[in-house]
Design a protein around this nucleic acid. Structure first.
Length: 437
RNA sequence: GUGAGUGUAGCUCAAUGGCAGAGCAUCGGACUGUGGAUCCGAAUGUUGGGGGUUCAAGUCCCCUCACUCACCCCA
């Protein structure tokens, strides 16, 4: 036996059966992206350290970094948003504006793997740059909605909030700007640990009893989207920055309605926070209740990020779809409308080596007509070849021996139905095509 | 980074502290113009690694590593 190794922790091999499912999901996602007017780009796996550093807050520790042979500090991309912002800055003059792109590529995080979490995973991103209005954010939400519906998801929530709320809350409590992320972090846990839990968190972070009491009012906000936002208005109306927040969320909700996203899907959730440093406005996250898994999409507005790379502030918003989590859920709920393990339609069986030339030309003929065809190249007898087709998941077999050659006929065996028909040689292509429909 | 659970053949799993096994998969043969068959045969292990207790350890103890799950955080 050889050296015993497996794939690196948190990274996976994909068999054909798995790849066919992945390609199906990616195909649907990509189809919707194009349908909404987004065009593809790709960026390199490795970015310079200066591109990556300082963009991810606490999460920066999860970056894969190393030195190249010229001693330059570099890292594997952590998401697609930061490389995209660098891309925009580098191609500013070539790009139309607004610019809408999609990008489906792996990213890497030095995380400890668990269910639905990997060190190498694909993200499917759409972003719109150059549009200040929340109409762009709303369109992003609609794309997320359409993708999930098309994939067969029945019950999910697209949660929205705005980063601006945390500025307002910081003002409201009279705390310094540096406390903002602590407020966000504590609030974000509300659903998990309840009001008392959040109060304890705040205490742990060193907030005064008076401020914790003030936060309790905020944390008690509930009801429909408009009930929640109006409840916040009552408390925060006179706090500087509130009207910016209020208008932003309202605009977004209105646009979302105009884009015909069902109102029950869009949830304004003032307790949604997102860890990444670069968000400036609306933030979004999609969750499903079962199976239990973290968010399946995440995104938001980042109006200052491109400016870091170009000295020109260009508004931008977008979202990422977590391919692996979607696939984890789809696997668990068996959401695929097919059950195929191969792209191959036809196996041409070889019984009699003397007929090989004939069989090669039949194979090539089918291939030229666009039918995915395999000529059997093993050394099993016909029984073994049938088993091969079954194992591989090929549904059609062409079986031809000397008799058929003489008669100018071929047998088509349909394995799923366990039937076999004999047809004239010249009808082969039409017969196969009809049956493939 | 923290915690819990699990590590035995390629895979799924057995084996009261007492000879390391089965099923599936693999390979060879029988059968030879048709469904995952059947029959005969074969190969496969440092029981994750190291140490300890014992007459005797896959089994008990310690250390370590790997995997899985959960927490943190996240897609």
């Amino acid at each position: 036996m050889g050296i015993k190794v497996s794939a690196y922790k948190g990274m996976r091999d994909f068999t054909p059966e798995v790849m066919i499912k992945r390609n199906y999901v990616i195909g649907i996602i990509e189809g919707i992206f194009r349908n909404y007017g987004f065009d593809p780009i790709e960026t390199p796996a490795i970015e310079l350290w200066d591109t990556l550093s300082g963009k991810y807050g606490d999460e920066e520790k999860l970056l894969y970094t190393f030195e190249d042979r010229g001693k330059r500090k570099v890292g594997l991309r952590y998401d697609l948003t930061v490389p995209f912002s660098r891309f925009v800055a580098n191609h500013l003059n070539e790009l139309p504006r607004p610019f809408k792109r999609y990008q489906i590529q792996p990213v890497w995080r030095a995380d400890k793997p668990q269910k639905g979490r990997f060190r190498e995973f694909y993200q499917c991103d759409i972003d719109i740059i150059g549009v200040k209005s929340t109409i762009a954010d709303a369109e992003i939400l609609k794309v997320l909605y359409s993708v999930l519906i098309k994939l067969g998801f029945k019950s999910f929530n697209i949660n929205i909030n705005s980063r601006k709320l945390f500025n307002v809350l910081t003002e409201y409590l009279g705390e310094g700007k540096e406390k903002e992320f602590l407020i966000a972090r504590a609030i974000d846990k509300l659903e998990k640990i309840g009001i008392e839990g959040v109060k304890e968190e705040l205490k742990k972070y060193g907030f005064s009893d008076n401020n914790i009491k003030k936060m309790e009012g905020i944390l008690s906000v509930k009801g429909t989207n408009s009930e929640k936002i109006n409840a916040l208005k009552k408390i925060l109306e006179n706090t500087p920055g509130f009207s910016l927040f209020y208008d932003e969320v309202n605009d977004l909700l209105n646009y979302a309605e105009e884009f015909k996203i069902p109102t029950k899907v869009i949830k304004f959730n003032p307790f949604l926070a997102r860890g990444l440093d670069y968000y400036t406005g609306p933030i979004f996250e999609t969750t499903i209740t079962s199976p239990k898994i973290g968010s399946i999409t995440g995104g938001g507005r980042y109006d200052n990020l491109i400016g870091i790379f170009s000295n020109r502030d260009i508004p931008a918003t977008g979202s990422s779809i977590g391919l692996e989590r979607i696939i984890t859920v789809m696997d668990e709920l068996d959401m695929y409308p097919f059950d195929k393990k191969t792209y191959t339609d036809v196996l041409v069986a070889v019984q009699d080596k003397k007929l090989k030339n004939e069989l090669i030309s039949i194979t090539e003929y089918l291939r030229e007509s666009g039918i995915s065809t395999e000529l059997y190249m093993g050394n099993k007898d016909l029984r073994g070849q049938i088993n091969y087709a079954l194992k591989k998941g090929i549904n059609f077999m062409i079986i031809m021996g000397e008799n058929e050659l003489k008669e100018q006929t071929v047998n088509i065996k349909i394995l799923s139905e366990n039937v076999q028909i004999k047809i004239k040689r010249e009808d082969l292509l039409e017969e196969v095509k009809n049956r493939l429909k």
